[in-house]
């Protein structure tokens, strides 16, 4: 609970969350908080439980105990599809794009619709109007990521880093106040990395960013605060400088490398 002290009103937090899956303790009384308007990093060796933290936050994995704060509110049981309505957007490891939809349609999928199947079946004009607004927002998101030229392509026709940009655009199109990024730097090159860094830094303070990432340089460059997980427990937290010199973190990472 001590880790909580710096952020009395976090945008996203787990309070004392435990998760067991198939007899394994994946998370063990984990308390993590991300302050509003800042970039918070979540690091740790493989199998530390980072992605499970995201999965609990986004409702894919139920917490056995403890509670979750999403966008400043306590939530009991959040479903993944309710995230965008709560102002939270998440990316997935890899790209998680829809292969049969064009880039523009992929991005538009991230914008919530107000109308149901009947309005769509009757092609009501207000559905078209909403679609037009969505399309404009999607194009803006594509422009902001510099890939507006690809809007009518299929994901499979694009290089992997561009696909990752599309996935980011889809997360941004709902204009979330909280952005959960799951390994955004995975598989992208140096130039893309710099764009990503700029994007993350320019998101704050309007948005809250939480980041799970293996790429240490990026984490250290963009994060305001970092939590370190190992074997389902928080082993350290602090600013990038504090983390860099934390002996427990060094031990965890060295231990991983020793084992590998």
């Amino acid at each position: 609970m001590g880790y909580y002290a710096p952020f009395p009103h976090p945008a996203v937090a787990l309070e004392d969350v435990s998760v067991r899956l198939g007899g394994l303790q994946i998370l063990d009384s984990v308390s993590i908080a991300a302050p509003r308007g800042a970039v918070t990093g979540l690091i740790g060796p493989n199998g530390a439980g980072k992605t499970t933290v995201f999965n609990v936050m986004s409702g894919f994995v139920p917490a056995d105990s403890g509670s979750v704060v999403l966008n400043g509110q306590h939530v009991h049981h959040v479903r993944p599809q309710q995230l965008t309505r709560r102002g939270v957007a998440r990316t997935l490891q890899g790209v998680g794009l829809f292969p049969s939809l064009t880039v523009l349609d992929n991005v538009m999928m991230g914008a919530p619709t107000r109308f149901g199947v009947i309005a769509d079946a009757l092609a009501m004009p207000w559905v078209d109007r909403e679609r037009r607004q969505m399309e404009e927002r999607a194009r803006e998101a594509l422009v902001s990521l510099g890939i507006e030229g690809e809007s009518s392509r299929l994901p499979s026709e694009l290089p992997y880093p561009v696909q990752k940009r599309v996935a980011l655009a889809r997360a941004l199109v709902s204009d979330p106040s909280v952005l959960l990024l799951d390994e955004p730097a995975g598989g992208i090159g140096e130039a893309d990395m710099q764009d990503l860094e700029r994007l993350i830094r320019s998101s704050v303070p309007d948005r809250t960013v939480v980041l799970v990432e293996h790429h240490m340089e990026l984490v250290m460059a963009v994060c305001d605060f970092i939590w370190v997980l190992d074997a389902g427990q928080v082993i350290a937290s602090g600013t990038p400088d504090q983390i860099r010199s934390d002996p427990a973190v060094l031990a965890a990472y060295l231990g991983e490398e020793g084992a590998a």
């Binding site: 899956l21 198939g22 992605t51 999965n55 894919f60 994995v61 997935l92």
Partner: peptide, 11 residues
């Protein structure tokens, strides 16, 4: 199923 093994959903 009754005799099946539950598999955790992977995300």
């Amino acid at each position: 199923g009754v005799f099946g093994h539950h598999k955790a959903r992977s995300v």
